[in-house]
């Protein structure tokens, strides 16, 4: 069980991220979560959107450097310690989280090398995992 993440290569300059976001807005694509990191020169911005296929088609049409990858999506309980519990579950199973970011509401996206074992570790800890179809339901009314 995983969801599709879209990563976009953008230069670290004013206005560059805007172009992608405006294109999404124009096409009515809902951003459910994102994270932007940079090296000082260029950045990789990662998005979780409601319609990944439509978003990728749009980016390809614009000639952007973008690709999809699968990430896990965990829905945490709305209480203190919930995030720690998810991390502990992975750590105890020896799973390294390459990067991780929160979506709208209490969902987090986790990038790991081996999705299946991370999924098993989180399921064992009773952490609620969300797939693409369910994400739409869970995050209805939470667009960034």
């Amino acid at each position: 069980m995983s969801i599709t993440q879209i990563s976009v290569f953008v230069e670290s300059r004013p206005g560059h991220l805007t172009r992608t976001l405006e294109a999404f807005a124009e096409a009515g694509i809902q951003v459910r979560g994102f994270c932007a990191g940079d090296t000082g020169e260029y950045g990789i911005v990662r998005f979780i959107v409601d319609r990944p296929d439509a978003a990728m088609a749009l980016l390809a049409e614009r000639g952007a450097a973008a690709r999809t990858s699968e990430v896990l999506c965990a829905r945490l309980d709305d209480r203190p310690g919930a995030l720690a519990r998810a991390m502990v579950a992975c750590a105890q199973a020896g799973i390294n989280i390459v990067y991780c970011y929160s979506l709208a509401a209490t969902c987090i996206a986790l990038s790991v090398k081996d999705i299946a074992s991370a999924e098993a570790a989180l399921a064992d800890a009773d952490i609620d995992l969300v797939d693409q179809a369910e994400l739409a339901r869970v995050l209805a009314g939470a667009t960034l």
């Binding site: 990191g37 090296t39 990789i44 990662r46 390809a60 952007a64 450097a65 973008a66």
Partner: peptide, 15 residues
Amino acid sequence: EIKPEAFSDSFEEMS
């Protein structure tokens, strides 16, 4: 300029 298909989604690989 990198070609769209050459983008790797990893800071490590891009660097």
